[in-house]
Computed example of a mutant assay.
Amino acid sequence: MTNTKFAHASADDLERLVELRLIAMRPSLEAIGRFNPDRARQRFVNEFEPEHTRLIFENDKLVGCFALLPRKDHLYLGHFYLHPDVQGKGIGKQVMKDILGAATALKRPIKLITLNESPAISFYEALGFAVTASDDVETTMEWSPNH
């Protein structure tokens, strides 16, 4: 039986979260010919807000993270990564149910950006997110507590 726990991130977690991002995102980025470790690292560094980032532990091992960033009219779900070893085991779905519950309590929609053709799109659609925009690389999705 697994045991999922959360902890607040700190600035000291930056490097291990960059590594987690590279491991988790590599297959999707390679599939579209855009895997660039330096660019992936810089994007994470530029957007890292430790005070809004939570670490996900499974049986006391770091397996993921997410950032739920407050914005003027919504919450932005950024940097939601799970290590490939734990993907498909229900952890992401449970984390998202907790996030959606928090957003419902706050009466705030959630927006996120995912890579085009990523399996994440169907994952988020199953949770009630809808595609609101896309470009050559990314798809923007939104979930509303009023849907």
Rank of each mutant, 00 (worst) to 15 (best):
S134R: 09
L112W: 04
H74K: 13
G88W: 02
T139S: 13
A126H: 10
R71N: 08
P70Y: 08
F57N: 09
Y76D: 09
I91P: 06
K61H: 10
H83C: 05
A102H: 12
A105P: 11
I56T: 04
N59Y: 01
F48T: 07
V137R: 12
A126V: 05
V137C: 07
L69V: 11
P119W: 03
I110R: 11
G64V: 00
F123Q: 12
G128R: 11
D73R: 15
T114V: 08
P109I: 09
G64F: 00
V131Q: 15
M96G: 10
F129T: 11
T132H: 10
R71F: 04
A133G: 12
V63N: 14
V137H: 07
L55I: 04
K93T: 07
V86L: 05
P50T: 13
P84K: 11
S122L: 04
E125I: 02
Y76E: 09
R108H: 09
H52A: 12
G64Y: 03
I110P: 09
L82D: 01
I113C: 14
V95P: 04
R108L: 05
P119E: 04
N116F: 00
D135Q: 12
L112T: 05
T132K: 14
T139M: 02
A120L: 02
D60M: 10
H52M: 08
Y81E: 05
I99L: 15
K72I: 11
L100Q: 15
V137W: 05
K93P: 02
G88D: 01
F66C: 10
T132N: 10
H52D: 11
A102C: 11
L115R: 08
S122W: 01
L75C: 07
K89I: 00
I99P: 13
K89Y: 02
L55W: 01
E125C: 08
I113P: 06
G92M: 04
I56H: 08
D135A: 12
L115Q: 10
N116W: 01
T104Q: 15
T114L: 04
H79Y: 01
A130W: 01
P119C: 06
A133Y: 08
E58F: 03
K93M: 06
T104C: 09
G88L: 02
E138A: 12
T104V: 08
A126M: 03
